[in-house]
């Protein structure tokens, strides 16, 4: 700040017009920089078509009691298990306090819903969950190979055991396998990944 231009306030006195111009220009440049950076960062988020590719229909009539299938949804596995009476009873007998993760982790219900088996299924006989271990994303083994110590799934990557409601019971995984948005379009077809209108009429309720 020199007094060359005759502006008042050099030498620590009143702020000069030049100070004001510096700060204003600097402020505009910073905001402008941020505005330019944002599109370049945001472009990496899922694109509109990726978001739109969100739903599939699955015919579950061929999934016999006591068996399961794995379907691909949004680039990853979804487990659909047609549970036996015994498996349902086993899942329902568990006290909430015995669960490492007490939340339902159900996309159809509000966050924080208690993780009872009833809050994780729409129809008790069909358990439908996303199939990536909540630890580091491996696909746990199921009925075909190894159901672990709680008769659900076992993740061999680092040893996580899930129960017959696909809730984490032991091992490094922090959360239950999440339940995706879904509803039964007919007796035998499930729609996974819902539009907002469908989600409103999907029949889910906290129990």
């Amino acid at each position: 700040m020199t007094e060359e231009n005759g502006a008042p306030g050099a030498d620590g006195q009143e702020p000069s017009r030049r100070d004001f111009i510096y700060i204003a220009a600097g402020g505009v440049a910073a905001v402008g920089g941020g505005l330019v950076a944002w599109p370049f960062i945001d472009q990496m988020n899922p694109a509109a078509d990726t978001l739109a590719l969100g739903s599939i229909r699955v015919d579950v009539s061929t999934v016999a009691v006591g068996s399961e299938i794995t379907v691909m949804w949004r680039g990853g596995p979804v487990f659909i298990r047609h549970r036996t009476e015994a498996e349902i009873a086993e899942a329902r007998a568990v006290e909430l306090g015995a669960l490492p993760d007490e939340e339902a982790r159900n996309d159809n219900l509000p966050a924080g819903t208690p993780g009872t088996d009833a809050n994780r299924v729409l129809r008790p006989e069909f358990l439908i969950v996303k199939g990536n271990c909540t630890h580091l994303g491996c696909v746990p083994l199921g009925l075909a190979a190894n159901t672990g110590d709680y008769d659900g799934w076992y993740c061999p990557c680092h040893g996580s055991h899930y129960d017959t409601s696909a809730r984490i019971r032991r091992g490094p995984a922090p959360e239950n396998l999440p339940v995706p948005d879904y509803y039964f379009e007919t007796e035998t077809t499930v729609k996974i990944g819902l539009s907002p209108e469908e989600a409103d009429n999907s029949g889910w309720a906290v129990s």
Partner: peptide, 27 residues
């Protein structure tokens, strides 16, 4: 999958960053 999931361990922002890295819902 494993390495990008590690980033999901970061508190609060982890899952958003993971999806941002993936550009989708999975690798």
């Amino acid at each position: 999958m494993v390495i990008t999931n590690l980033i999901g361990a970061l508190p609060f922002v982890g899952e958003a960053i993971r999806e941002w890295l993936w550009g989708g819902f999975s690798v």
